[in-house]
Design a protein around this nucleic acid. Structure first.
Length: 218
DNA sequence: GTCCAGGGCCGTT
DNA sequence: AACGGCCATGGA
């Protein structure tokens, strides 16, 4: 009950749903965008988005900013993949995690698009089997890259729950269920609400330029 | 120099 | 189930 009211009040604060996501996204997400979002979900684990941007810059300059290309680089030389993503921190594990994700997508599904052609539950189970991808990373990929209806619980969401005293329990599954039970099961609602929770948590005033650049941050 | 940032995994209680 | 240590960089 209360959750939905909070969602409405955030919409009021940040703008109506129609132009809210347009500001984040400006144009329709391409498959290239979606691949970046999926890769970013791993790169941003416990790391500032600023550091992740440095990685994207490297990958772009090296012309390897895609799942297929990362797979090829990782297969050929794990060391060079590590160097490319160094600035994201925890770079050895993250190189491993990125490679495992790309390998899984390419070898088992050929492309991210085909992977997402499966149903939500199947996609989620497969992502969670990849070493280094836990519930938050998996759900970020599903919601923001796959446009699948699953609510993301992260540190910002937990702070939001505490701030508004929405629960005394904070386990991932419990909170995810709590949000999903109190919201219409709708991709856009989940994306907008979570994105606005993050904005609230950052105390960031609306900054169009950086949100376009950071399109894949959420 | 110190602190912190959208996790996840592992070992210990 | 809960908690601490670990992984590592760059910017404030």
């Amino acid at each position: 009950m209360k959750i939905y009211q909070l969602y409405l009040s955030l919409l009021k604060k940040y703008g109506n749903p129609k132009d809210f996501w347009a500001k984040w996204c400006k144009r329709k997400k391409t498959w290239q965008d979606k691949e970046e979002i999926a890769l970013g979900a791993i790169l941003t684990q416990r790391t500032s988005w600023q550091n992740v941007e440095l990685v994207f810059k490297n990958l772009r300059e090296a012309n390897v900013l895609s799942i297929e290309k990362i797979y090829q680089v990782g297969k050929k030389s794990r060391g060079s993949l590590e160097e490319l993503i160094r600035s994201s921190g925890f770079y050895k594990q993250k190189a491993q995690r990125l490679f495992q994700l790309c390998k899984f997508i390419i070898e088992n599904h050929k492309s991210l698009e085909r992977f997402f052609g499966q149903n939500l539950k199947t996609c989620r189970q497969q992502l969670l089997k990849i070493y280094g991808i836990g519930p938050e990373t998996a759900d970020s990929i599903l919601l923001y890259a796959g446009d699948k209806p699953i609510f993301v619980i992260d540190e910002y969401t937990r702070r939001f729950v505490k701030k508004h005293k929405l629960s005394t329990k904070f386990s991932y599954d419990y909170l995810q269920d709590l949000f999903q039970k109190n919201l219409p099961r709708n991709v856009k609602t989940y994306q907008d609400f979570h994105a606005m929770i993050v904005l609230e948590g950052k105390g960031t005033s609306w900054d169009l330029q950086s949100s376009i650049e950071q399109r894949s941050l959420v």
